[in-house]
Amino acid sequence: MAQDAAGTVGARVSPQVDSLIRAAQAGDQDAFEQLVRTYDQSVLRLAMNLLRSPEDARDVYQEAFLRVYRNLHAFRFDCSFHTWLYRIVTNICLDQLRKRQVRKEESPTIETREGPIDRMDTFQEESAHADPERSLWNRQLKQRIETALQDLTPRERMVFELRHYQGLRLRNIGEMLGTTEEAAKNCLFRATQKMRAVLGDFT
């Protein structure tokens, strides 16, 4: 459960971020860039983990921060900047996930002679396993996890990603997705149930 600087900031607007926003709103380009740098790692990580494609993550990054740039003047400090930013980011990511569900073409796994593998494995260093049996088991587990994640609705996927990987609180997640804490709880519950069902005793 990762909790990074930006995630922690999410609970309140720190004075530094506050003044960066005000400067950026007044047209200070450097302040805007600094503001972006405060949050963009977690945004890119979210997009990358949800979409499993560097190209798509790059598109999300660009679109999200351009929207921030265009609409920053409308930010009124009535929620944390992190929440406001994540409303934009999660909207864009959900759109992408929904499009994929309709198209069903952009699978996060690619077919190989040894069976389907996660697209991202081609970008990651495979840790060297001396034990081939363990390596096979790991590959099968990964495959099951991919199937399990694909079974989630975009919203369940998003809530799970934000809670498990980004370490955000469900109340905050509800706020970002325009829903209640209770609905976010139900979403997380359904997501874990579905994954448990697919993974069975594998884990």
Binding site: E33, D40, L44, M48, R52, R58, Q62
Partner: peptide, 23 residues
């Protein structure tokens, strides 16, 4: 389950972040 899912997490390459910023 959570531990298995933890392993799936990926960190974007620093180059990708730099590319995004300059774009």
């Amino acid at each position: 389950l959570a531990a298995a899912l933890d392993k799936r997490q990926i960190a974007p390459a620093p180059m990708l972040l730099e590319d995004c910023r300059s774009d």
